[in-house]
């Protein structure tokens, strides 16, 4: 038997409840409304929304609020890159110089065969953990430990194992957020403009023979690169070379004279703008090798650390 009255009652009950709550919400909205800058919503749309925190603010919403309030520069979102900066600038109605895309660069290439372990570290798979356990056992105290910290911290999985267990950045995935830079206990990671090709691949503060004894491809602080650089863009500080990316024009002179190949040139594969490998210009190097004088001919291992600029 169909109970027709139930249909009416059901309709009444749901309509009643719906209207009651609807009315309550409408009234509540009048009283509890918070005036929000409409641009915040738009900005939130424009930002990547991955809440990576690279801007230093807690999430994209905070960044949108800071942008709308004018407390943050339009290029605050490093992860979003130039596209996001342009969109943000459009919403805010300001002109923004589009920032340079930056990518992480790991300043170490000394794997097991180049910088042998003095001890085996067994424990938590974390570089910070290994650092606590007598520095992790690697002979070079400045080199990459090859454990998990930067790879775990990376929000876009752009850090993988490179040659011999040293970490490597997958350039096309890297958003340049700089989180890995902060987690690396050895301060190995620096953010470099993505367009730059010539990079220093060592972080060893030791100079001369000491540096080479710990790692065969260490920067010895010989200052040959400094002398050869036509634009004064490379400087040795604390025993290791640093490139001033504002001045560098990728000429590669420094890589050509580096006795230990710790300065290298990133050459992209044809057709793959983000894939490539580090190389050293061989021809120029031979020419220079006979230049400075009292230096043996031969492999980089034997002549390293004997340079005239060593001090």
């Amino acid at each position: 038997m169909v109970q027709l009255d139930l249909v009416w009652k059901a309709a009444l009950a749901l309509t009643g409840l719906g209207m009651l709550f609807g009315a309550l919400l409408a009234v509540a909205f009048r009283f509890f409304r918070v005036e929000v800058d409409p641009r915040v919503e738009e900005l939130l749309e424009a930002l990547p929304g991955s809440n990576c925190g690279a801007c230093g603010l807690p999430g994209c919403e905070a960044a949108a609020e800071a942008l709308a309030a004018g407390e943050a520069p339009p290029d605050i979102c490093k992860a979003g890159g130039p596209d996001t900066t342009a969109a943000v600038a459009r919403i805010l109605g300001v002109e923004a110089e589009t920032g340079v895309r930056r990518v992480a660069h790991i300043r170490c290439r000394g794997g097991e065969s180049l910088s042998p372990s003095l001890a085996f570290y067994q424990g938590v798979n974390s570089c910070r953990g290994a650092m606590l356990a007598a520095g992790g056992g690697k002979s070079c105290p400045y080199g990459c430990l090859g454990l998990q910290d930067c790879a775990d911290a990376c929000p876009v999985n752009a850090i993988s194992f490179g040659e011999e267990g040293v970490r490597e950045v997958v350039i096309d995935r890297c958003t340049g957020c700089g989180i890995c830079e902060e987690v690396c206990p050895r301060g190995l990671i620096e953010m470099v403009p993505a367009a730059r090709r010539v990079l220093v691949r060592c972080n060893s503060r030791y100079t001369g023979k000491k540096a080479v004894s710990l790692c065969k491809v260490a920067c010895t602080g010989c200052r040959r690169c400094e002398k050869v650089c036509p634009r004064d863009a490379i400087r040795v500080r604390d025993g290791v070379a640093y490139i001033d990316f504002e001045r560098c024009d990728d000429c590669g002179e420094c890589a050509a004279v580096c006795p230990t190949d710790s300065i290298q040139i990133w050459s992209t594969l044809p057709g793959h703008p983000h894939k490539g490998e580090f190389t050293v210009p061989p021809k120029a190097r031979k020419k220079k090798a006979s230049g400075p004088g009292h230096e043996k001919e031969g492999g980089s291992d034997s002549c390293a650390g004997e340079g005239p600029g060593e001090d």
Partner: peptide
């Protein structure tokens, strides 16, 4: 509706 309401109140208060 309740969650909407609570969200509104908390946002204000």
């Amino acid at each position: 509706s309740l969650v909407q309401f609570v969200e509104m109140v908390i946002k204000k208060a």
